[in-house]
Design a protein around this nucleic acid. Structure first.
Lengths: 356, 356
DNA sequence: GGCACAAATCGAATCGATTCGATTCGATCC
DNA sequence: GGATCGAATCGAATCGATTCGATTTGTGCC
């Protein structure tokens, strides 16, 4: 009868009549141990109800847990709602899973509890995805901890590998497309510059206080083509917020209404589309709408959003590979992935130019 | 100058001139240590570049990692696409986060790598959500490892707390609603009975080989009202699969076409709606469509899906509370949460009965 | 001034494995 | 028959903390 205390490797070894080291080798599947011995160990384990080496103790000894923390923006709920983020996560798991690495989801930019939690949870490495704001305390903590970190579209940090995309060029290309269609009065909808729940037109000082590089890059792409244009910041990257922005921008007299709205994400663009529909505006006849991301939004069909397509899954895979590199002691290089414009059914000639 | 090896609590304690035990207390924020002493320890830590106790070592000692594994069905990607699953996850995090517990996502029903991974990753507890099939090897492994497990809508297992919903009654209620509307020829679209990529009409033997209790419960709800009806099984719970099922069921001569389709999830129902649209069928004039879940699908607007609403977030919170109970040594009780019917715009009188 | 008591600190055991270098034991070779 | 070699196994150190009971120090009281 097995004793009442949980069995340990040592007790199993004792029962099998071998040393703990041999038992350990047996469980590790080392070829340096006889098949017969291995069997004896397994039998003993069975008898004692021992399910294999304790993961914690093993992790401590070999200094590796098999867990990679992934920080996704804002609340987890929002990240889950964002097809782009999901594809990214999927790309990450795709590469990490075969290596037996689990994905620990952490809400980025979170408050105290998350900080504490971060300090207590064993992590081999971390991926800062999208959410990383400049000077994020979580990031600082990880660095002090000497946890390898990979940044995805986050702040540029000395010594941290950065997986980036060419947002600016892509946005500029899309903006150029709109300019070629005759659009002159355009507006843009930006993702949050800070996570303080603010929404509204972006003032110069608000912009100066922004914390997220992605937002700036995509803004710059528009500016490259149109110069400064009205930018409406939303409180978070979800459809409803896009709709609010859409109403704010489009529910004005026609002569002051933008003929094209460039949203910084497809979710926001979808919201703008909804707002347009609610206001009785036809797309693209009355207003053109464009997004960013190009993740598949099946529910938009048959509408095809004009957007900048980014390889989100490849971004995830690249980030995951960078993590594996770090864990293997190799220093990964920074990567900037290409993006490309997809012209859909939501952009068309500017109404003005048609009349002209 | 700090030595080249990573600083440890012991080295910090030595520099501060206290014992390791005191230093430990200091970092734990114990009131049993003088503010002055604590400060001295922190200063020493700073000097050595020590970021706080090693999470792994600490976890080993106190036998707790602060990580709860959550198994979500099939591939992570699909789970991410399912608003219901997402709300569930959100509910879980909502309760767990304040307790400093991180959520480790694991793909349920996965192959070998996931098994290995599971055996190596330190976990305090696990939540088996939706995906749990009867006799899942992952579940068996967790039980052998004596990891506390909470099952959500999974198999009924001796000794494992079960968080369930009243699918059967809810589905029956919805089916009754359709019967009251005069529908006599109905069909149902089921989620996968096994994860082997099969799709098509469910045969008796296929049904007998099914592994997921949820599917049976919802089938039973339909049977309660209509008796056996044609059931089309999809390969996975996504919109596209629902559309395929919709085509298979609806693309037939009108006199053999079901006047109502009950899908086992809103995602599948959305697919059926798309199929109906593609086939030029009006909803609900030509065919009524109903779903299950009631998570908000903003993109369906202005259509409102007739469905059974389940409290997914509350389900998640309940599961998370059960986990906390288990971790605190309390034995949680099984819970069955109520569901309720929501009549939307996708169900209406049966075409036959209108003519009659 | 001596005693009791509380507060602060310390020592040592413990959590449960992994791993490296050393040791044993046959078998092979000359 | 003894030296050599390789395979299998073993011992002991180590990973880095936490925690409990014991010890020291300081304070209040009679």
């Amino acid at each position: 009868m097995p004793s009442h205390t949980r069995p340990t490797l040592a007790s199993v070894a004792a029962l099998a009549g071998v040393s703990p080291s041999t038992a350990s080798l047996a469980f590790a599947g080392s070829s340096r141990v006889t098949a017969e011995t291995r069997q004896r160990v397994f039998t003993a384990a069975q008898e004692l109800g021992y399910a294999g080496p304790d993961p914690l103790a093993a992790s401590l000894r070999r200094r590796r847990t098999g867990v990679v923390g992934t920080f996704v923006g804002e609340r987890l709920l929002y990240a889950f709602r964002d097809p782009e983020a999901i594809q990214l996560l999927d790309g990450i798991t795709e590469v990490l899973s075969p290596h037996g690495v689990g994905l620990l989801l952490l809400a980025g930019d979170a408050g105290r509890p998350a900080q504490e939690q971060l300090a207590r949870i064993p992590l081999d490495a971390a991926i800062f995805a999208t959410c990383g704001m400049a000077g994020d305390p979580a990031l600082a903590l990880l660095q002090r901890r000497a946890v390898p970190v990979v940044v995805v579209e986050g702040p540029v940090m000395e010594g941290l590998p950065l997986i980036d995309i060419d947002d600016r060029r892509g946005t500029a290309e899309l903006a150029g497309h709109l300019r070629d269609l005759g659009h002159r009065r355009v507006a843009t909808v930006t993702m949050p510059l800070r996570l303080d729940g603010t929404r509204g037109l972006v003032s110069a000082e608000r912009e100066a206080a922004g914390m997220y590089r992605v937002v700036f890059k995509r803004l710059a792409g528009v500016t490259d083509v149109f110069g400064k244009v009205p930018a409406f910041e939303v409180a978070s990257n979800v459809v409803d917020e896009g709709a609010r922005a859409g109403h704010a921008l489009l529910d004005v007299p026609a002569d002051r209404r933008p003929t094209a709205v460039l949203a910084q994400s497809d979710l926001l663009a979808a919201g703008v589309l909804r707002a347009a529909a609610e206001l009785g505006l036809r797309v693209p006849e009355d207003v053109s709408v464009a997004g960013f991301d190009g993740a598949d939004l099946p529910w938009l069909r048959p509408t095809v959003l004009s957007t900048v397509v980014q390889p989100s899954d490849e971004k995830g895979r690249t980030a995951a590979r960078a993590v594996l590199d770090l864990l293997a002691g190799r220093q990964p290089t920074d990567v900037t992935l290409p993006v490309w414009m997809r012209v859909g059914t939501t952009t068309g000639p500017a109404p003005d130019s048609v009349q002209a």
